[in-house]
Simulated scan of single mutants.
Amino acid sequence: MAPQPSRKDPTLPHTIASARQEWQAFWLALGFLTRVPMLIRIEYTQTLMNQSSVYFPLIGLLLGAVYAGLFSALSLLFSPLICLIMVVSAHLWLTGAFHEDGLADSMDALGGGYTVEARLHIMKDSRIGTYGTVALVLALALKVALLMETSNIGLALLISPCLARLTPLVLMRCMNYVTDPDTSKSKPVAEGFSRQRLWAAFAFAALVALAAEPWAPGLLTWSALSIGLVAWLWGRNLKQNLGGYTGDALGASVVFTELALLACLTV
């Protein structure tokens, strides 16, 4: 009998291409949210930037692992308060104060602008004003204070960056983008974010919360409450004052969610 010709699986090239695209999307998310250099060559496209959003919680978990490990190492030499100040400083350096910058710009815009146009103009200004300075100082001080009150500081440092990065995904999915796309670096991330990838991000974060439940009972419930409350209250504020969200507003939502979650963990 003559040998049969081999048949290649037609789905194999597509699977490999999809896996390669997801790998690049992960690195693109890492480079977008942190100062970590991308170690692979990225074939940048609008679609790839859209897909990278699903990896925000994973990037948060990796950052949390760095913070928790750093805190454990520093605890051998310093008091918890000093360790936390050092960890927060490392966080600001590693992320380039990405979300904190969004918080400051958002507070300056909402506090100092009386029209939508004026608020958006202030938000694009790189200078920081009184409202932004006060909000930033209070947020950082409250973060350290809440971490000091948690029963497991290392666990809080590990999981809060992961879970807090779900809130901007909810806002991106449920609201309209209002900033000029030519002047914002967050527009490519926001555009075309699918419902399926949002659910994938939620599933990943839920698994993280469930895995931590033995050390933090009720974490899944507290996380859902924190994310839902911030998304609703902050989203409502943005809808009333801007008509939608901006990149800075997304960053502020991460800070707010972290504070709300840490507050729940202290109860």
Score class of each variant (00 low, 15 high):
Leu39Pro: 05
Thr133Phe: 12
Ser53Asp: 01
Met38Val: 15
Val87Ser: 00
Asn50Ala: 15
Ile59Cys: 12
Tyr131Ile: 02
Ala135Phe: 08
Met148Trp: 11
Asp101Ala: 06
Gly112Ser: 12
Lys124Trp: 03
Phe56Tyr: 14
Ser106Val: 01
Glu100Val: 11
Leu158Glu: 03
Thr47Asn: 08
Met172Gly: 01
His91Gln: 12
Gln46Arg: 14
Leu81Trp: 13
Met107Phe: 15
Gly129Ser: 02
Gly64Ser: 03
His91Phe: 06
Thr150Gln: 06
Met38Asp: 00
Asp125Gly: 05
Leu169Tyr: 13
Leu74Phe: 05
Phe78Ser: 06
Asp105Val: 05
Lys124Cys: 00
Ser106Gly: 01
Met172Asn: 03
Arg35Ser: 05
Leu63Phe: 06
Leu166Lys: 00
Ser151Tyr: 14
Met86Trp: 14
Thr47Glu: 10
Leu158Ile: 02
Val137Ser: 07
Met123Pro: 01
Leu138Glu: 08
Glu117Trp: 06
Gly102Asp: 12
Ser126Glu: 14
Leu136Trp: 14
Ala156Gly: 12
Arg35Phe: 06
Val116Pro: 01
Met107Val: 07
Thr167Lys: 00
Met175Gln: 14
Leu163Met: 04
Tyr67Lys: 06
Asp105Met: 07
Leu136Ala: 10
Glu117Met: 05
Val116Ile: 11
Lys124Leu: 08
Pro168Gly: 10
Ser160Arg: 02
Thr167Arg: 01
Ala164Thr: 04
Met49Ile: 05
Ala145Asn: 08
Ala118Trp: 06
Cys83Met: 02
Leu76Val: 03
Leu77Ser: 10
Trp93Met: 12
Met148Asp: 06
His99Thr: 03
Ser79Ile: 11
His99Met: 03
Tyr67Phe: 14
Ser160Cys: 12
Ala65Trp: 15
Leu163Thr: 03
Leu74His: 04
Gly111Val: 08
Leu48Ser: 09
Ala118Gln: 15
Leu33Trp: 14
Leu63Arg: 00
His99Ile: 03
Ser75Lys: 11
Asp125Lys: 09
Gly112Trp: 00
Ala135Ser: 14
Leu103Arg: 03
Gly96Lys: 02
Val170His: 10
Leu138Asp: 07
Leu103Asn: 01
Ala135Tyr: 11
Pro37Asn: 09
Ser151Leu: 13
Met172Leu: 14
Val144Phe: 04
Ile159Ser: 00
Arg173His: 10
Ala135Cys: 09
Pro168Trp: 08
Glu117Thr: 15
Ile153Glu: 00
Leu169Ile: 11
Asn50Tyr: 05
Gly69Thr: 13
Ala135Arg: 09
Thr115Trp: 12
Leu74Cys: 07
Ala68Trp: 05
Met172Ser: 02
Leu163Glu: 04
Arg119Trp: 13
Ala109Arg: 02
Ser72Ile: 14
Val66Gly: 03
Ser151Gly: 12
Gly111Cys: 09
Arg127Ala: 14
Phe56Gln: 09
Ile40Thr: 04
Asp105Thr: 06
Pro80Tyr: 13
Leu157Ser: 04
Arg119His: 11
Leu58Tyr: 04
